[in-house]
Design a binder for these strands. Structure first.
Lengths: 134, 134
DNA sequence: GTAATATTTCAATAATATTTGAAATGTTTT
DNA sequence: AAAACATTTCAAATATTATTGAAATATTAC
């Protein structure tokens, strides 16, 4: 059986190469075929950053923290009083949001006041808008 | 030591109630205090939907699938050829995106052609715009 | 109907993420 | 410097999610 995809542009190793039917190959011709699609993928570091960002949003506790910080900057003790959870648990989630670049904490006397980063605020405002228009 | 938060508005059970310092209580007075913040939280079902949505985005394989479908609708076999992975793995991830409401599949002859939902397309276009302006 | 193709489902395993409670850190007050 | 308070870190236990390969389903071609 003949290979279905054109090998014209550059040599690729055949091992692990997954063949696709001719009619399907034709249909994706205008976007550069499989090769073109591969090239259109975001770079790995970009994918990683997106993954960390969305992962940070993918938890009820963290969504609630973000929602609270949309109202105003808050110290850990208030977030804890609102969400009613153990210190260490809250701290764990704050740290994930911090690592994702969504929040920053500033020590003020006894307390650490957390606030959204500019990036996160933009994102959350856009999302609020988008979700309200569904 | 006296309780720090006003109990004026409604009776709440004291058990599990986390006290906050007076100065902090004062500082969040303008947003309704702890009670006000609790009321400002999104409803549970809303939180759940958001969680499922962002969770769907929080994986490299799925981000790549979404990126590919931004180019054009594609059948499973092309996605497989681009991402070079086992059928069952790909199917697993497609299913998660489908459950989150981000993609839909339509059987066409042999193939199932997957496409982004309108919601997902709006989201991804906005995100692309936002991320490019960083 | 049988064979061929495309995709999904299933069950077991592996990998990650979350929760928990105790101990540690860092700040302020005395 | 000791006590009090706010928050974080750590290690163990639990829960969730992802991967794998085999078997099942569904569609089309013969």
């Amino acid at each position: 059986m003949a290979r279905q995809r054109a090998d014209s542009r550059k040599a690729r190793k055949e091992v692990g190469d997954i063949p696709i039917p001719q009619d399907i190959a034709d249909s994706i011709c205008s976007c550069g075929g499989v090769e073109g699609l591969i090239e259109s993928l975001p770079a790995d570091d970009s994918i990683e950053r997106m993954q960390r960002w969305y992962q940070a949003c993918a938890d009820p506790v963290r969504l609630k923290i973000l929602s609270l910080l949309m109202v105003r900057p808050l110290c850990v003790c208030v977030i804890k009083a609102v969400l009613q959870m153990a210190d260490s648990k809250l701290s764990y989630h704050l740290n994930i949001l911090k690592k994702a670049g969504m929040i920053e904490g500033e020590q003020q006397g006894y307390y650490i006041i957390y606030n959204l980063t500019d990036q996160a605020r933009v994102f959350l405002e856009r999302e609020r808008e988008r979700l309200s228009s569904l």
